[in-house]
Amino acid sequence: MKNNWTLPLFSWVLSTVILEILAITNLHTLPSSGSKQAVVIDEAFFLLIYICIPIFTLITVFLIYSVFKFRSKGRPDKDGPHVTNSRNLSYVWVIGSFILVAFVFVHPGVTGVLELRAEEKRVPDVVIQAEAQKWSWKIMYLKEGVYSRNEIVLPAYYNTKFYVTSKDVLHAFWIPAFRVKIDAVPGMTTHVNATPTKLGNFDEDVNYRLQCAELCGIGHAQMSIPVRVLSENDYKTWLKNQKSLR
């Protein structure tokens, strides 16, 4: 009886440690991170991975172990023991998973939301309105009176608020490098904040693009424009040039 437990428990711990180490050192599946929001979101993502690994290994290890340990060659000639329940194990399992869920809910769940919202509540440094229409974006720097249809230019380190609207169907405003996403809904103005933390542009990194992320018809796939993050001075020069163009 006791023998049954030691090997799988040991393998569980071992495989968890191995996978955790692999995950911490080797997991780079997210796009390059270019905003404060991305940091919050990536932290949550990796934390969830670290939390899920032991759950995953627990079940997989016990599954594989029992399949090999308890299999019978061909048709079993005897029944297994008539065990229908184990009250203690059930309690441990249910309460354990409840605690885990509660933990995940508080952190990174609620904490993540609050961190993102804190960023939203700050008075924005730059306000941009993005208007979606099949299948293009119109970017409006309202205060400065500048419009752009073929790219978004942003100053680094500035908290930027995007107001997103749509003229026809649903679209979504998504910049992979910033991780932020919000739908553009006809008849409503939605909003999202992003604070770029480094310079970057589409030519060097495809994640610097504004991509429509809500199916909007034939042109959906191609409804994207480049994003360019400039230093404060470059940004001001850019604005000035844009104004003089008009």
Partner: peptide, 26 residues
């Protein structure tokens, strides 16, 4: 949404608990 993983997890408990010390016919 996250709460729903508690009852869902019970399915895994039950499956593993049944396999455990059974006579598996693969």
């Amino acid at each position: 949404t996250e709460l729903i993983s508690v009852p869902t997890g019970v399915v895994f408990l039950s499956a593993l608990g049944t396999i455990w010390r059974g006579k598996l016919w693969l």
